[in-house]
Structures are given as C-alpha cells and as structure tokens.
Design a protein around this nucleic acid. Structure first.
Lengths: 340, 340
DNA sequence: AATCTTAACTAAATCGGTTTAGCTACTTCT
DNA sequence: AGAAGTAGCTAAACCGATTTAGTTAAGATT
C-alpha cells in the first residue's frame, strides 16, 4: 500500500494539483470543473485510497478540524467518561479530538495549551487546574474559542459548563440532616479549586439552615497528591471516641473509596455508626457494602454541551447559544446514609 | 501574546532562518554557529515564548514525535488507565500521544489507523477489534512501527503485549474448584476476540483437570453491545432451580457488575448460594458486597512495556528487546468466592 | 471583425518549518 | 604567495496540501 499524494493523482490524470484539491474538497462545481474530470479524480482517489496529509492540510489552511481536550487525568473515570462523550459528539460534528492530561500541574497545563495551539487545534475544552488565569485571559484576548468544563474561573468572563457544586453538596448534606444526623464530617481536598470551595460552602449552608454551628474540626482537607496517606489520620480524628461524627460527606469519588476502605479497616459500622455520602460516583457504588448514596454528575451533558458551545463558536454561528452553563446534579439515594 | 515564528526571530536578529532552526534544535554546535549567536537566538526565542508549529515541523521532517493509541473505548476504566500510563511513559521519552476510540468497530479502526498515519504519527499502539488483519499486515509490510496490546492476532507475527488470559482464567476457576464449587457458570462475550476465546479455554482446562464434564449450558456468551439486557436471562438460566450453578466466573469487569446487580435483584446470596469471581476489576471491587475476587491485570506494565517496545523500534535501536510479551495476571482473593 | 463572456482549467505563492549544498572571509601551512 | 582548511554563516529546495489570480479557447454579442 504505497501512499498516494495529490501530486500523484494530478500527474496520473494529467490535471493540475489545484483541480484535484478542489474536487476532493467538494469545490469542483463552484469552480466549474467539468463533471467528467470530477468523476475521474474522485474515482482515482477512491481507488487508490487517497487520504490527505493532515499536517499539510492543517498547515496550509491554518485549520485542522481538530479540537483539544485538556483534563487533569485521563485515568480518572470522571474525566475518561467526559473524554469518551466529547470524542463521540465531536466526531458527530466532524471534528477530531486531541486529549492530554495536565496531572493538575499548572505549568504542564500551560505547555499543553501552547502545544495544542501549535498543532492548530481550532478550539479547546479545558478542565483547568485553575492556576492559569493568565493563559486563559490571553486565549480570550486572542479570541481563541474555548470552553472551560468542570472547573472555571469565576473572576473571568468565559464560556463554561460546570455542575452546581454548591447545591449538589448542600442537597446531600441536607439529606443526612433530614435523616437525623447532626454531627457531619466533611472530607474534601485542600481548597484551590473553585469547585471544591463551592462544595464546602454547600456543606456549610446546609448546616446553617439547620442552625448547626460550623465546626472546623469536622472538616478534613487533604492534599490531592497524598490523600491515600492522609485519609488515615483524617478518619481517625473524625471518629475519635466519644466525639465521633455520625456521618461523613466525601467530596470526590476517590475520597469516598479510600475513606470507606479506612472505615471498614477500623471496623466502623456504616451506616449505623457513621453514615456516608459521596459527591460523584464510581460505576460500582451501587454494589458496594453499603451501596453509597451519591451526587451524580451529568457527565454526558457536560461533554455534549461543551462541544456544542465550542463548535458553535468555532464555526462562528452567532445564534445566542447560552455559553455559561451550571448544570444540576442528581442525588442517588442508597443505603449508606441509613435510609432504610 | 502575538505568535512568533522562526522568520520573525531571524529578521529581528539579522540571521537566517537556517541558523535559528539549527540552534533551536540543538544543532548549533555541530553546525558551527558561534556561541554568541546561539545565545542571542536562544534568549530571544525564550523571551518571546517561541514554540515551533508542530504541523510545519512534522510536515517537513516527516516526523512528529507523536505516537498514536487506538483503543476500543476511552470510557472503559481498563483502557483509560492504559491511556494514562501510556501518556506518562511516552512523555517521559519525549513523545506526545494521540488517542482515539474505535468503539469496537473494525471499519472505524481502519479509518483511525489511516487518519493517524496522515498525522504523521511515528508509531501505533493498538488494542484491536481483531477484525483488521489486512490493515495490520499492511502496516507490517510498510515496516511501520506498531505494538498490539490486550488483543493480538495470533496468526500474524507482530509485536504485542498481552496478559495471559488462559492462565488467568484457569487460575481463578481452579480457585473455585479448590473451594469445593463444582457447578461453575461462565458468563462471557460472544467469541471473536482471541482474549475471550483464551478465557473460555482457561475455564475449560480447569474443569478438565478436575475431571468435570464441560457443560455448554453453563456458558453464556453475551453480545458486547447488548449485554445489559442479555444478562438478565443469562443469570436466570444459570440459577434455575433445582439445577442452579454454585458459582459464576465473569470474564470482564462490566459483566461482573451487571451480573452481580442482577443476582442481588433476584435475591441470590453471594457467595453462600452462588460464589462469583471476575476477570479484571474496577477500583471499588474490594468494597463491594461481597468484595469480589478478581484477576488483576498488570495495566501499568502493559502500557510501559508497549511504549518501550514501540519507541525502541521507532528509534531503530536494534538491541534485542523481547517484542512479544505475555504478562501474568494476579489473583486478588476476596470474599465473593466464599473463602472465609 | 472586434469585443465580451464564460467554461474549464492551471501556475505559482503560501503555510512554517527543516535541511542540503554552498558561499565568504580568515587563518594556517608549505 | 598560493593552496588548503575552517569558522560562521545563508539561499533555496522541500514537505504536501490550499488558494489566489490568472490563462486559454470557444462561443456569444454587437
């Protein structure tokens, strides 16, 4: 299977490269290439499996029919699902997706943005580390199309699609309160991400509505890089006799996993002694012992809407697509909060 | 932040594009560009955040420092983990990764291969649908570097990194046998994938060693696209009174999830009435009720070894890297097989 | 017969780099 | 003094497309 180039087709058929290019880009008619010539070109191209070199094409057009997706970590199920849906939707609309993981490193995120721009992506979907305001602002200044997902910069006026972290967490905390729990621990990450801040605020707001004083001792903020270690002392402190919490809200699926693992290791009865709930979930959370009450994020919607907004902007359709979206999450009530 | 090109640097510093290109590619010394000029160029480039256009670079060099990864589905945790490790390792070695999902569609897989070649990727890692022998053979013929992972074509002599599906499944089946289970169901996928065939063979081989007749009724092969529906009747048939199985081996993590969900819905006691084990696992399988005995695949090794083999081949280092690898899986024994 | 149109093309510039083949001005050797 | 060598560059071709600005020949118009 030798590669065929535009030039080869042109030479073989005794026409110009221009003609071949025009025809294969469906611009034959508008450039008055005769039907006969068009037929010959199309047939030859098909027969020899011609596929244009995307680098050359992208270089010369300054376009690439490619969008970039920058996420913290492709291994995380939340982001891998997003990636899957983004890929599907983009493909539907005729675009290819370039993925890359920043590993929560702002510097790497910056490099990725640049590297993607240099690959002529036409737009970006970014789940940012939120420590690159400068880069984001400069994208904005250059009028480069992009959409932030999952995490946005509240201080900057950009497109975004996020979930309502505040209400998600507030709802699930209220759920515990309704069930009579009063001493509710909160295991989260060190703030830095707006989403994480919002989750804390949601937790606090729920307590406030129930006139419960906010007790900082009940809030454990772990480091994103070392949470597997830190969870041990966090849980120990939360369940310290005789002042143990009666429930814990975990602010991410992985904190829930390690947290529950730790609770089991310490033989804490869940949910009798300590009820738990999770923001975000893993596929098997309904099979876990006990099945875990979770705030479910509309992953598919996030992806689809982000792609829609982005491509809409790329293609310059000025119809007023709402470009700042805060989506609702759903609460899946299961046994881990002691409902039944 | 206006973009700076090679030409700009050259003009600004009154040197040729050649000089700039050479210096920025670390070929200044060998081309006898004076230290002073090198300094000026490097400084200017750094100061103005010059990053070469990858399309132009790739086009002119016929290289791209990019490898492609084609997997069935980025949303599947198994593949998303692979993707994560591939990305990390490749980055370490100076390569960027282009991902794409084939969704188990051989035609799409073919298109992806072509599309990646046209983006000048220098090598491919493919978890193939195994219905594209022709394309694979033609890659081979073109001496294009590639490594098959997870799924390989046994009839074709290529690089590959797979796990030992046969022994993985044999071991876990034997484990059930050792625990006294004798009527063992097997829930798998319609064959087509070599890996799936091997798993069935492993199951059969374990039975044979224990002189148990192979009973086709106990083997349920579901369709990859409709397993969520088909699992219902599969489970019903397997547990039909009074000939119920006493255990079930699931051949993928998602079959395990839906299978267990179904068993619970039917109020089957796991593991007392029916023990279960899983080939491959999800993050939370140790937290499930009951914790699921699983064959754990060495995901990180698969990724790392595949990247090593590939890049080794790309860079033409002829040292005898073993390029056909069958990796062992590990058995994580948990309560779902009724051990304790 | 001279001019205008139009159908059906094409030559050549361009995208932003890399790379080959030289060129110039010194210095060194014999 | 002339030849040879070398340090320090550069012009221009090239990668494989796209696209702009024409060109040519035939037919229509006046």
């Amino acid at each position: 299977m030798k590669k065929v180039f535009l030039k080869d087709i042109a030479e073989e058929l005794n026409v110009s490269k221009t003609a071949v290019s025009l025809v294969l880009n469906n611009k034959g008619d508008e450039n008055k290439i005769s039907q006969e010539t068009q037929q010959r070109i199309i047939e030859f191209a098909r027969k020899h499996n011609y596929v244009p070199n995307q680098l050359a094409r992208g270089l010369s057009r300054g376009k690439s029919e490619t969008i970039g997706l920058i996420i913290p970590n492709i291994s995380d199920t939340f982001y891998s699902k997003i990636a899957g849906y983004v890929e599907l939707k983009a493909k539907d609309l005729g675009y290819t997706v370039l993925f890359s993981s920043s590993n929560e490193d702002p510097k790497k995120e910056g490099e990725l943005i640049r590297s993607m721009l240099n690959r002529q992506v036409e737009g970006l979907i970014i789940a940012s580390t939120q420590q690159n305001l400068k880069e984001i602002e400069s994208l904005k200044q250059d009028k480069f199309p992009f959409v932030l997902i999952d995490r946005h910069y509240p201080e900057s006026d950009t497109n975004y699609v996020v979930v309502d972290n505040f209400n998600g967490l507030k709802t699930v905390t209220e759920h515990l309160l309704e069930l009579g729990r009063r001493k509710i621990g909160f295991v989260s990450l060190k703030p830095g991400l707006e989403a994480i801040k919002q989750r804390l605020l949601g937790y606090q707001s729920a307590l406030e509505d129930y006139k419960i004083d906010y007790n900082k001792e009940l809030v454990k903020e772990l480091s994103p890089k070392n949470y597997e270690e830190e969870i041990k002392s966090a849980i120990s402190e939360l369940i310290k006799f005789p002042n143990s919490v009666d429930s814990i809200v975990f602010s991410t699926h992985y904190l829930t996993s390690v947290g529950l693992r730790e609770l089991k290791k310490k033989n804490v009865k869940v949910p009798q002694e300590v009820a738990i709930v999770s923001f975000d979930e893993l596929t098997a959370f309904d099979l876990v012992d006990p099945p875990i009450t979770s705030v479910i994020q509309p992953v598919k919607d996030i992806a689809n809407i982000a792609v829609d907004i982005l491509i809409n902007e790329i293609e310059g359709k000025e119809n007023g697509f709402e470009n700042k979206r805060i989506l609702d999450s759903k609460l899946a009530i299961r046994k881990s909060c002691g409902t039944f």
